[in-house]
Amino acid sequence: MALCRSTWLSTLFNKAPTIAASAFSRCNFAALIAFSCLYIMKSTEELSGIAQQVRRDIVRMVHAVNSGHPGGSLGCTDYFVALYFHILNHRPDGFDMNGHGEDLFFLSNGHISPVWYSVLARSGYFPVSELATFRKLDTRLQGHPTTHEGLPGIRVASGSLGQGLSVALGAAQAKKLNGDPSIVYTLHGDGEIQEGQIWEAAMYAAHHKIDNIISTIDVNGQQIDGPTEKVMSLGNLRAKWEAFGWTVCEMEGNDMAEVLKGLTHAKSLTGQGKPIMILMTTSMGKGVDFMEGTPKWHGVAPNDAELANALGQLTETLGDY
């Protein structure tokens, strides 16, 4: 059960998954579909509102310290909001490293920490005011996520790319050993999968039939030196992952309704003997027109005028920190 602190959402969010689960257990698919449509239609607008606020947080955070990674953060905002405010069964209050009985999330491309920190704070893992400490001396919100400073919600350090899938697979196997039916989620950059360890992990997951994992690749087609196609072509991603034994889905990552539908569908594919990969198409810098679709804003912060421009495009729905 998602326990969200945001009062204007809590009633809806706390009840909806229970109703959905009971619909599943009765195999009443007609009721489930009818309910899902109603629920998603109702909640999509509110989730999009949260995403507006998270995007404001992102640009304000990186502007404040003149560093950080806004591009990928903005592109993945809708995914993070859908995950933390709708999909995950998690306990923001009383964070527990082992996460028994909870769904877990691992961010492998740790440089998009701004979006994760914002969503963690906005869903109740730590005070929203702490976002103001991002990348500053003595902060728990390090440039790249870490367990070292004890920030609730983080279960492993990431930033050096290509390592998160392996860690998530270990956590997923621990859940199986513990008889815990929860699901493990991961997010990766598309450039990141140029790392060889990703493919070691891909092979491992299929071999060991780890079917309680839903991984997502943020396919924005950009990396630091330019388009992935130019830097190091990824080829046919669907064919690659299918050849490695994964069930592959595709999802439009900047449409909240599509993200909810895609993640819900992926969830329905767990427990079938195969790991699940979602290829999520996003636009880097989504939501701020001058940051969109270019690698220029991968790791560059906006100046004062650019911040004002960006904030003018994003509605303050939950109150700035």
């Binding site: 392996s166 196997q173 621990a174 513990n178 360890q197 992990a201 491992y204």
Partner: peptide, 23 residues
């Protein structure tokens, strides 16, 4: 027991993940 094949980088990551869950 988990056989990881000739993939030591993955082995270290999977081991780290197994600790999350008390192993």
């Amino acid at each position: 027991f988990f056989q990881v094949g000739i993939a030591e980088a993955n082995m270290m990551g999977v081991a780290a993940g197994l600790t999350i869950g008390g192993k």
